[in-house]
């Protein structure tokens, strides 16, 4: 199943629909979606450092929301911009992986719009042919 990422409008914010063969693939796409919303030129974020993450959730949708909020925290507190997620282990309730990215530099990485949180509003994970589809809404 080909991976896909599609943004949709939410009155004050943005949402994204992700499709991938499995949860790990959805998590990788979510990292990309986050970067595309946050930074004007995502390609300017290089893979110069890394961050290991271990997350838990009550189910797959909750896990993706937790991943999104981890990205918010890492950006705001550590100044770390994730460009790519390398999934080491993914189950319905746990995700382990390495985020590859760069230290935020306002000159090199102009902000498009700060992402303040990743919400549970309408958060969904559902099976589709040959894979999974997730729907996540960002708070901007």
């Amino acid at each position: 199943m080909p991976r896909s990422l599609r943004f949709f409008d939410h009155t004050g914010d943005f949402g994204v629909v992700l499709e991938a063969p499995g949860l790990g693939g959805l998590a990788e796409l979510l990292v990309r979606a986050f970067l595309e919303l946050l930074i004007e030129v995502p390609a300017a974020v290089h893979e110069r450092s890394e961050h290991r993450i271990e997350l838990e959730g009550i189910d797959g949708a909750d896990l993706l929301v937790a991943l999104g909020n981890e990205l918010v925290y890492l950006f705001e507190v550590e100044g770390f911009l994730a460009a790519r997620l390398e999934v080491l282990r993914a189950s319905e309730t746990a995700l382990c992986g390495v985020l590859h990215g760069d230290r935020f530099d306002p000159e090199e990485h102009p902000i498009a719009r700060p992402v303040k949180a990743v919400t549970h509003h309408g958060a969904r994970l559902e099976p589709v042919e040959d894979g999974l589809r997730a729907r996540i809404v960002f708070d901007l």
Partner: peptide, 9 residues
């Protein structure tokens, strides 16, 4: 009022 998360704004 407009579309919020869960609750409307």
């Amino acid at each position: 009022i407009h579309w919020g998360y869960g609750f409307p704004i």
